[in-house]
Design a protein around this nucleic acid. Structure first.
Length: 280
DNA sequence: AAACCACACAACCGCATCATT
DNA sequence: AAATGATGCGGTTGTGTGGTT
């Protein structure tokens, strides 16, 4: 006998989340932390599927989320990682602090894909189109069965998936990457440091727990003020305060009515400080 | 000013894998 | 070991918004 269903399909609300629902979910997660999503709707007083709650939280409500468009550096990193990992958005997102798989997936489909196409690069194989046409004939029998797998696209270049050989992919990727990366050297350094870090890449391939998500594996809610998100990669990982300005945007639907009972005075102080800073 | 179109993004759906009984 | 449900992931769709005609 298995578990009980996560929710009874009857009476489960769908569609866009209301401010009231967001409020309930935030309140619940901040108070109780992330645990069995199956129980969340019931305990939080929501008529939603647990799955929907998890999605809403991870993609929209999580306080460590960055909002806004991806930066050039992030975009280039996504391209590089996609060349290695294919459509494994969660893996890619794990390397971009504050970004969700859904966000990256959307950005890929709406921006990056078109950008690459404009540049004459196949967004699937990351190869120039004319080159693609050449090799297509040679490997047609293979690609017909395997081309859905991104690894196979890479493994066409090298059948072994060992990480040493990924450097080859990096180089070819760099050769075909957009011209703009030349003009932002700092960003390139950042990307290079990540992409050429074999330890990191190994962890990607070895299905190790993503570094970035580690703070969220914790059942306890992220405490403001003592959060140090500095990742192992050494790039600046935003603090809770740095990223919770979105919360202030919640004024649209009355953040002050949110009833963050679980926030202590210090947390509210931080929020107020931010709020004041924002208005100046 | 209204209609139409394109874009961006939030949310849903279905599948695969993992965990539990 | 098998059955069943939970969770996570990737693909797809629906909807709101801004721009253009």
């Amino acid at each position: 006998m298995g578990r009980q269903p996560c929710c009874d399909k009857l009476g489960v609300k769908k569609g866009p989340w209301t401010a009231e629902e967001d409020k309930k979910l935030i309140n619940f997660i901040l108070t109780n932390g992330q645990c069995c999503w199956r129980a969340v709707p019931k305990l939080a007083g929501l008529r939603r599927c647990g799955k929907s709650c998890r999605l809403r939280w991870t993609n929209y409500l999580r306080p460590d989320l960055k909002r806004g468009l991806l930066t050039e550096a992030e975009e280039q990193l996504v391209i590089d990682l996609h060349a290695r990992l294919g459509n494994r958005w969660s893996k890619i997102a794990a390397r971009l602090p504050g970004r969700t798989d859904n966000e990256i997936k959307n950005h890929w489909n709406t921006h990056i894909k078109k950008k690459l196409l404009k540049m004459g690069i196949d967004p699937v194989t990351h190869e120039p189109f004319h080159k693609e046409a050449k090799t297509e004939e040679e490997s047609s029998s293979i690609s017909q069965t395997d081309n859905l797998l991104p690894e196979s696209a890479n493994s066409n270049n090298n059948n072994s998936s060992s990480m040493q050989e990924n450097d080859g992919i990096v180089n070819s990727e760099e050769n075909t990457s957009s011209p703009h990366e030349n003009c932002c050297s700092n960003e390139s350094i950042l990307i290079d440091s990540i992409c050429k870090d074999e330890t990191l890449l190994n962890s990607l391939w070895m299905d190790e727990p993503p570094l970035v998500d580690s703070s969220w594996n914790n059942n306890n809610p992220p405490a403001m003020g003592n959060t140090n998100y500095n990742g192992e990669m050494g790039y600046p990982y935003p603090s809770w305060e740095d990223n919770c300005s979105w919360l202030l945007d919640c004024q649209d639907f009355g953040v002050h009515d949110f009833g963050f009972d679980c926030f202590d005075n210090l947390e509210f102080k931080s929020l107020n400080t931010l709020e004041m800073g924002d208005k100046h």
